[in-house]
């Protein structure tokens, strides 16, 4: 564990807490892509179900349980109590176009040809692009509540710090994980446009609005 990875994980955790606060405080999930949230739940289930047979550390176990539980809770809330506030007409990204290629890539690129390793690869590729329905929704509406942008900023920050963590781990322990690196690079790059608007508008105290 190094400081970059720890802060990254805590940002990831914070992003979900921010999302839960937004949904609870406003009793609404408007502006949040249901598709992205379902994809994240799929990502966590595909990657973290090994929590039952693969022990790494108490920290690792806690985080896995936290991510599966909260992602389930978010999807449950968006299906049930907050269903009517969903931005359905804006959440129009075709999820098939990212799930199918992720599955195909996982079958081609994996560490070992086993069910769990292919699921791991699938989850890594899917996580890289799971934010696309959310970014698409943002583009469709052209604006976002400030708390929603903080959620996205924490998610993007988490990914950016993972890149720093990998550079650090490469030089300190010779750590190499080409699949995670390529997917992580793509995942972080997707946030560039968002971060530009976030830094130039939201952090200057203005509304998030696309030109």
């Amino acid at each position: 564990m190094n400081i970059f990875r720890l802060v990254a994980d805590l940002l990831h955790l914070a992003s979900i807490v921010i999302l839960l606060i937004k949904m609870y405080a406003t009793n609404s999930c408007s502006g949040i892509s249901f598709k992205t949230q379902v994809l994240y739940l799929a990502v966590f289930i595909a990657r973290y179900l090994d929590v039952f047979w693969h022990f790494v550390s108490v920290y690792n176990t806690f985080m896995k349980v936290f991510f599966i539980a909260t992602a389930s809770g978010v999807v449950w809330a968006m299906l049930g109590p907050l269903k009517d506030s969903r931005s359905k007409s804006l959440d129009t990204f075709r999820w098939e176009f990212i799930v199918a290629p992720s599955a195909l890539l996982a079958i081609i690129f994996h560490d070992r040809f086993t069910v769990t390793e292919i699921f791991w690869s699938f989850s890594v590729f899917l996580e890289a692009v799971a934010i696309l329905p959310q970014l698409h929704l943002l583009q469709q509406s052209g604006e976002a509540e400030t708390i929603t942008t903080h959620y996205l900023a924490a998610l993007g920050g988490y990914r950016a710090l993972y890149l720093v963590n990998w550079i650090y781990r490469y030089f300190t322990e010779g750590y190499v994980d080409v699949i995670a690196w390529c997917a992580g690079l793509v995942q972080t790059a997707l946030y560039c446009d968002f971060f530009y608007v976030y830094f130039t508008r939201v952090l200057q105290g203005r509304r998030f609005a696309l030109p």
Binding site: N60, D111, Y162, G174, Y175, V176, D177
Partner: peptide, 10 residues
Amino acid sequence: ATKVAFHDEL
């Protein structure tokens, strides 16, 4: 460079 034997990251 080495590859860790298992996935230790989240």
